[in-house]
Simulated scan of single mutants.
Amino acid sequence: MQQAAGRAGAILTIDLGAVRSNYRLLRSRLGSAQCGAAVKADAYGLGAIRISEALFTEGCRHFFVAHLDEAITLRPYLPEQASIYVMHGSPVGYEAEFIEHRCIPVLNSCQQIAAWRELAQQRQTALPAIIQLDTGMSRMGMSAQEVQAWLADPEFIDGIDLQYLMSHLACAEDQQSPMNRQQLQAFQALRAQLPNCRATLANSSGIFLGPDFHFDLARPGAALYGLTPVAGQANPLQPVVHLQGKIIQTREIASGTGVGYSLTYRSSQVRRIATVAVGYADGWLRSLSNRGIVYIGDKPAPMVGNVSMDTITLDVSDVALELLYPGALVDLISTKNTADQVAERAGTIGYEILTSLGLRYQRHYMDTSADQQQTISHTS
Rank of each mutant, 00 (worst) to 15 (best):
Q2I: 12
A5H: 11
G6H: 13
I11R: 14
L12S: 02
T13H: 08
I14T: 11
I14N: 01
I14V: 15
D15C: 04
S21F: 04
R24L: 09
L25G: 08
L26N: 05
R27F: 08
R27D: 09
S28Q: 09
L30S: 06
A33R: 02
Q34F: 12
G36A: 08
A38Q: 09
D42G: 10
A43H: 02
Y44V: 11
Y44D: 03
L46C: 11
E53V: 12
H62V: 09
F64C: 11
E70H: 08
E70L: 06
R75D: 05
R75W: 00
Q81K: 11
A82H: 00
S83Q: 11
V86D: 05
V86E: 06
M87H: 04
G89E: 03
S90D: 06
P91R: 05
E97M: 12
H101P: 08
R102I: 11
I104E: 03
V106S: 00
L107E: 00
S109H: 04
I113F: 05
A114S: 13
A115S: 13
R117G: 05
R117M: 06
E118S: 14
Q121F: 10
R123A: 13
A126W: 12
D134F: 02
G136F: 01
M137L: 12
R139C: 06
A144T: 13
Q148Y: 07
A149P: 10
D153Y: 03
P154W: 02
G159Y: 01
Q163V: 14
L165H: 06
M166P: 10
L169K: 07
E173N: 14
Q176P: 10
N180H: 05
Q185F: 14
A189C: 10
R191K: 15
Q193G: 10
L194P: 09
P195T: 07
A199W: 01
T200E: 08
T200S: 15
A202G: 10
F213S: 06
F215G: 06
F215T: 11
L217I: 11
L224H: 09
P229L: 02
V230T: 12
A231P: 04
Q233F: 07
Q233Y: 08
I247G: 00
I247T: 00
G256N: 01
G256T: 03
G256I: 02
G260I: 07
S262A: 14
S262K: 14
L263G: 12
T264F: 06
R266Q: 13
R271Q: 12
R272F: 04
A274N: 04
A274F: 02
T275F: 04
V278N: 03
A281G: 15
L285P: 06
S289H: 03
V294D: 03
G297F: 00
K299G: 04
A301Y: 00
T311S: 05
S317L: 04
V319C: 15
A320L: 12
L321R: 15
E322H: 15
Y325L: 11
L332H: 02
S334G: 11
K336F: 05
N337L: 08
T338R: 01
A339I: 06
Q341F: 09
V342P: 02
A343P: 07
A343M: 07
R345N: 01
R345F: 03
T348A: 00
Y351P: 07
L354T: 10
T355V: 13
S356V: 13
S356D: 14
G358Q: 04
G358E: 01
L359Q: 15
Q362Y: 15
Q362E: 10
Q362D: 13
M366L: 14
D367S: 10
S369G: 10
S369Y: 02
A370D: 11
D371K: 14
I376G: 10
